[in-house]
Design a protein around this nucleic acid. Structure first.
Lengths: 242, 242
DNA sequence: GCGACGCCTTGATCCATATCAAAGCCATGA
DNA sequence: TCATGGCTTTGATATGGATCAAGGCGTCGC
């Protein structure tokens, strides 16, 4: 984004009176939920909406970590690359998720839009001011960090010790639990490559393993990105490893 | 620990005037470093020293997360177990490290002393009071959480995508970077089993790979727990994967 | 000093998953 | 409608690390 574009987005976003934050579709699920609706204008003053087109990288690992983001709609993948191109996806973000905690002076990961995505951006200094003004934010941010750490530890167990079948079962249940509706039919916003890079596997193993689970009647693959969980208890046993 | 023991430790630890915190050997490396030395008595009022004998588990995954800990001396391993006994070590804690962020209502990991260990314990409510009284703690805790998240993401890359050689090189460099002296001779507080469970490998692979690195003159194994890094640049290239 | 126990190393073999290769299967646009 | 290109699936083969199986080597107690 060039300076001029950034500025114009910034100015549009700064209109605190237009209800940007008050009518934000992700508010109830994000850290902003701790702020009283009366103070939404204040919040809007320090935050700026932006749209990200599909496939665009909006956080680059190693760059100065100047901003935090909240996903307002769509999905993003958070990942890191090795020099030879090996990729590990650390997580998928969806509406309400806070991005940027895993950073010191620079971002520790890259982030790319899966499909079209909209974000809310906070500068580091803006968030610092908001934290001072709304102390409840501190607690909410610590909760957010704790949740992410717990999730990261689960991923470490998955990547270090689980078999391919166990990884896929864990992944499907995680998608199921994160969906707002909790239906047994889950829609996957990522490709097989995304699943493989998240689970530390290859796309072939992901494909074969999903088909094996289907043959065993644990799931049904209605479309490539749509899977029905036919036997939740069995998947849970598999995911936790017995 | 029974209620009576807890109480007696508590009362001993509560003697704010005895200089417990002021003379704490881990203070400069821990979150307590943000608090002015004048206020050490206040800090000591909410914290309690305890000694843990070698091999003892002092945090149990799944139990109510009622306390936070700071390691004051010695080392601990933080890990999680699968029902069939597969173990993943999430990290090793040393003096100054803060334990307990990766928890919701219950601890997400178990922690066990490697050798003898001393800790400082804060109750959840005690820390909450201290956070209110010393707002700098908020920032320091967020930094701590960020550092842990960055480290967790590095572990995910290691476990998901690195080869055994790359994992060992990464591990040795991490131990090197965390040692206060930064000498090229590193002392490992954990056994081969500990290394294996941290790197998602078996003890046999750890042993073979370390010996291979020794044959290639990247390291020298002087004793089982003492390794000299002979070629740091080559190890760094290996660790990052080319 | 000596036996025993607990790591650690080394060797042989196996196997889960990667890699290599070739079709399928859509969706898209001419 | 048909060609194109990008996923995804499926099959054949290879391999890094696991597993199985001995030994080795300190350390500790007696």
């Amino acid at each position: 984004m060039d300076a001029q574009t950034r500025e114009s987005i910034s100015m549009l976003g700064s209109c605190g009176s237009c209800g940007q934050c008050l009518h934000c579709e992700a508010r109830s699920r994000s850290i902003c939920s701790v702020i009283d609706p009366d103070h939404m204008a204040r919040l809007a003053q320090y935050s700026h909406r932006l749209a990200v087109s599909p496939g665009k990288t909006f956080i680059q690992e190693g760059e100065a970590a100047s901003d935090f983001f909240i996903v307002t709609s769509g999905h993003a993948k958070l990942f890191s690359l090795m020099p030879d191109g090996r990729r590990q996806i650390m997580g998928f973000a969806q509406a309400g998720d806070f991005l940027g905690l895993a950073s010191g002076a620079t971002y520790a990961f890259s982030a790319e839009a899966l499909g079209s995505l909209s974000l809310c951006r906070f500068s580091r200094s803006g968030l610092a001011l908001l934290r001072r003004e709304f102390p409840d934010l501190e607690n909410r941010l610590m909760e957010e960090a704790s949740r992410e750490l717990v999730q990261a530890q689960k991923s470490m167990m998955l990547l270090g010790r689980k078999t391919a079948r166990e990884r896929l079962a864990s992944f499907l249940l995680e998608q199921h639990q994160r969906s707002p509706t909790r239906e047994i039919v889950i829609h996957l916003p990522m490709s097989r490559t995304g699943i493989a890079d998240y689970l530390g596997l290859t796309i072939e193993t992901v494909s074969r393993t999903l088909n094996a689970l289907q043959r065993e009647k644990l799931i049904a693959i209605s479309q490539v990105t749509q899977i029905t969980l036919l036997n939740l208890p069995a998947l849970e046993v598999l995911a936790r490893g017995g």
